[in-house]
Amino acid sequence: MTVYLLRRLFQAFGVVVAMSVLVFVGVYGIGNPVDILISPDADQMERERAIRALGLDRPLWEQYVWFVANALQGDLGRSFAYNEPALQLILQRMPATLELAFAAMILAVAIGLPLGLYAGLHPHSPASKAIMAGSILGFSLPTFWVGLMLIMLFAVHLGWLPSNGRGATAEFLGVQWSFLTANGLAHLAMPAFNLALFKISLVIRLTRAGVREAMLMDYVKFARAKGLSPRRVTFVHVLKNILIPVVTVTGLELGGTIAFSVVTETVFSWPGMGKLIIDSINRLDRPVMVAYLMIIVLMFVVINLLVDILYTVLDPRVRIEGKAA
């Protein structure tokens, strides 16, 4: 077990190192950030001063060595545009994104699971067909467009919800959250739904497929034959068994939602990490781009590592294989 863990940790470390090189080289390749950042009024000398001041006159390998040396001390560089530590900038924006991502996941499960269950239990009813057709729309409509349509409908025409921003926040555990105030919740509703739309469709389809499969299983037939109520069969025997893939996929989706809610955050001016990264890309704010991608890489590596460890706990076969090696 220890050997297995060590090996996995070592692999995770290798992934982080490889990604840091890839990210660094990739971001470096886009171009010189000073070209974008500098005022057009500046002359050649001022341009060269800025390049030196930001350390961009050094060769790539030297910049990378500096980056790694600093990163090992927890310093991922300073934003060119804000002159603040990139890590701090990202962490400041993280609560807003986490809040949005979790709200979206909750919506996805709360809406997707019942609809999927219904569609699975009554596959031939018109309502089920409508749900499945709707889920195709959820998959295929671009988030960007749906977001704008939601704004036009609920904010502009009906005036029920605010069109963008985060609204009032309240402090909890030293961090400002929107979901603790009514105004904040109103601001959260549309972006969360917009972000959830794809995931709702995913959960519907997963649940429906699971239910359809489980209904044919012997244990369900047996439960029915025993004379258990349909309610008990559905919610205990079927639901419990189909939840495993649903939970796995939603868990994996959560990581992606946290990392890449860029489009929704832009449309709704939600001041989260996604908005920060897109603003940073637009002005080639290299340290923020690198720090952000490194944090995301680290997040995925940790999630995968945890999942692997959980598997060894849950599934003895993995442990045995590890020993054999």
Partner: peptide
Amino acid sequence: RMITNNAARTAALLAGD
């Protein structure tokens, strides 16, 4: 308010935000 997206900025005005 910094609203960089063009359509969202117009929508914010239309919605009275």
